[in-house]
């Protein structure tokens, strides 16, 4: 995705693919909203507020994909030293931060009627906040280091370390018996067999929403990478023009 030569135009077919992805994201998101509001119906015990769950889990999946991509980008950067993998990592951190912020905010709107509080120091709520802070620290690290080569290298290293907080968030509800956060799928202390006991409509809506957020994350990351590349091109142009004067 990096611009190889200095003044080469952005490849036409890539722009087409991105436009198609954008359209797909919009259509998918609209469709999943329709499913959420019209198809799935209020949940038996939780009522209308349960509808936010599809966005909640979807955005968490988005942040999980993005933060995993940060590790992949970091490892590849450290092996190849190609700056485009650093741009890829940066884009994924920013999109992951937005996605997990959505997870936290939707979780709070759900918690107020269900738990009668916006916030509680439950293990999972705590760990997802730690995760968000770890990636906010990634941005601080980038801002603090001036040498570009060193900034890329340190960012790759920290992006890999910070993934510990993502694993922590996923594992913690499985091993801590004292969480009140619901676990929808997979084994827990209370239910080691890991049942996935929902109606067909809920399952369909959930999987559709997860798919939507996956596509959305990929699209947003692509836009962010493109923006960064454009930014660098402008910078190079500026230097060229100044050199000609």
């Amino acid at each position: 995705m990096a611009v190889s030569s200095q003044h080469a135009p952005y490849p036409e077919n890539r722009t087409r693919i991105l436009q198609a992805l954008t359209l797909a994201t919009l259509v998918l998101f609209a469709a999943s909203l329709v499913l959420d509001w019209a198809y799935v119906g209020p949940e038996r015990t939780q009522g209308e507020v349960q509808r936010v769950f599809y966005v909640h889990l979807g955005s968490f999946l988005g942040s999980f994909i993005a933060f995993t991509a940060v590790v992949v980008g970091g490892v590849i950067y450290l092996r190849t030293r190609n700056p485009k993998w650093d741009t890829f990592g940066l884009a994924n951190v920013e999109i992951g931060l937005v996605m997990s912020a959505i997870t936290i905010v939707t979780g709070m709107t759900w918690a107020k009627p269900i738990w009668n509080t916006w916030w509680t120091w439950d293990p999972r709520l705590t760990s997802v906040t730690i995760m968000w802070l770890a990636y906010a620290a990634y941005m601080m690290l980038r801002a603090g280091i001036e040498d570009p080569e060193r900034r890329r290298r340190f960012a790759a290293v920290y992006g890999i370390i910070a993934f510990a907080s993502v694993l922590f968030t996923i594992i913690i509800v499985r091993v801590k018996p004292d969480t009140i956060h619901p676990v929808v799928a997979g084994p827990t202390q209370a239910d080691p067999t890991g049942a996935f006991d929902v109606t067909d409509r809920i399952r369909n809506t959930l999987f559709f929403s997860l798919f939507t957020f996956t596509v959305m994350t990929a699209t947003l990351v692509w836009y962010r990478v493109r923006l960064e590349n454009l930014f660098e091109r402008v910078l190079r142009r500026k230097i060229d023009i100044l050199a000609e004067l």
Binding site: I130, M131, A134, A137, A162, F168
Partner: peptide
């Protein structure tokens, strides 16, 4: 100031 910011979230486990 950067060290505590980097260190706190990672060492939380």
């Amino acid at each position: 100031t950067l060290l505590p910011i980097l260190l706190m979230p990672v060492m939380m486990p």
